Simulated assay, not measured.
Amino acid sequence: MLTIRAARADELPALTTFPNDDERNAATSAYLAGLLEHDCTRPEWCLVAERDGALIGNVVLWTVPGRTVPMDIVLLEPGDPATGQELLAHAADLARSLGAQNQGHVLDTPAQAPQFQRDPQLRETLLAATGFTVARDGCRFLWTAGDPMPAQDARLRWRSLSDLGQEPFVELLADSFADTKDSIWQAEIAEHGLREAAERNLADMLEMDHEPGWFEIGYDERDQPVAASLPARTPSSAVIGLVAVARAGRGQGYATSVVARGTQLLVAAGNTEIRGDCDAGNIAMFKAFQRAGYRNFANRKMFSRPL
């Protein structure tokens, strides 16, 4: 008989383990321990599938530290298809009971630490069967200590949010969103309009771990705001965060300038690994990461379902 329940204290943080797979078991356990420590998840949000006394699958809910409503599924070990469907159904019920209206999940290929999402076709099939659709087909980029530092753009003068206040950031984001190639932002604009989409994205970034001077706008030689840089940290990595280029500044390499600026600030703060994401179809942003010395280490599909 299959039982879906919250993990017991002695089952955390390892949850489902696999024989002869020490690398995966250690990395995933350490990852979940970090999520629990940073209040990105809670023991009662860690569900396991048990059959005949053995754990055969698990699903873990996630949110931004400080929030009480889970936003996404961050870890999923589906076991067999039937078990996976039961786990995803329980994950939906739990999140809905806590006030969530939508639920997301990301699938990275190739499989790698810390999630080790093997059997991607099985996972995609399960997600589709339980109401998920693809919200973004994206690419992931990585810079690590020892890689060349990207050159800084001498054309730009940077001013921080603490100096400018939020309004110039909202205005620049709204302007850049007007012809965005990012599918996530396109969906937000369709639902909320340009101005509110910009406000919501800035609010989300402000919730992330960052230093007061990191969020900046770059001004060109005519003192016009042309680009916004919003790097931050997650519990597992530093991230370039949000890159925005005003429509009047397009075609001048400012997206690369933003990635370079964010990299400089994050490295100065002691970070040795920095990640970034963009839509697979956003060729300009893809090239911006490459020109700044980042490598495309994985592809990431972002899924979402209404609850």
Rank of each mutant, 00 (worst) to 15 (best):
A154P: 01
E188Y: 11
N20P: 01
Q103I: 12
I4D: 00
A269I: 08
L122G: 01
L164M: 07
E207G: 14
A178C: 04
E188T: 08
A135R: 10
F286V: 14
H105C: 09
G241C: 05
L156N: 02
A260I: 11
M285H: 01
L75M: 10
D163Q: 12
R275W: 04
G270T: 13
I56S: 00
D22E: 12
A54M: 13
Y31C: 03
C139R: 13
S160K: 03
V48N: 06
V64Q: 10
Q264V: 01
L172H: 11
T144S: 11
R233F: 05
H210Q: 05
I217Y: 05
E44R: 14
A255W: 01
A197V: 08
D21C: 10
D220W: 10
H192Q: 09
A151M: 07
L156I: 03
L98F: 02
T144L: 10
I189P: 04
R275D: 03
S229F: 00
Y219S: 03
G53D: 08
F177C: 04
E23I: 14
G34E: 14
C278A: 06
R51K: 13
Q101H: 15
E124T: 12
A197W: 04
R67D: 15
G79T: 05
V259H: 04
T256S: 15
N296Q: 15
E199D: 14
T144D: 08
N102G: 15
F297Q: 05
I4P: 00
V60D: 03
I189F: 12
A113E: 15
I283S: 12
A100Q: 07
F303A: 00
S304P: 00
G213L: 05
G53F: 12
T263Q: 04
V259C: 03
P306L: 11
T41P: 09
M149Q: 09
L55W: 00
W45T: 08
Y31H: 14
L127T: 02
I217V: 11
G53V: 06
T256D: 10
A30R: 15
P70N: 00
A255E: 09
I283F: 07
A111Y: 02
A9H: 13
R275P: 00
M71Y: 11
A174I: 07
A187E: 14
F141P: 00
P150T: 02
L12I: 00
T125N: 14
G293Y: 03
N20F: 11
P78F: 04
D277M: 07
L307D: 05
N282M: 02
L266D: 04
G146Q: 07
T234P: 03
G146D: 08
H192G: 13
C278F: 00
D182G: 07
A111D: 13
A198G: 08
A27R: 12
P225L: 02
P148H: 06
K287C: 04
T256A: 15
S236H: 09
G66F: 05
Q115H: 11
P13W: 10
Y219E: 03
T234K: 12
T3S: 14
L55R: 13
G104S: 14
A190M: 03
I4S: 04
L156R: 01
P120G: 06
P212M: 08
P231E: 02
A284T: 13
E273C: 09
H210W: 05
A248I: 13
R222E: 09
V226T: 01
I56R: 07
W62N: 14
G213S: 06
Q117H: 07
N299C: 06
N58E: 15
D93I: 07
G99C: 01
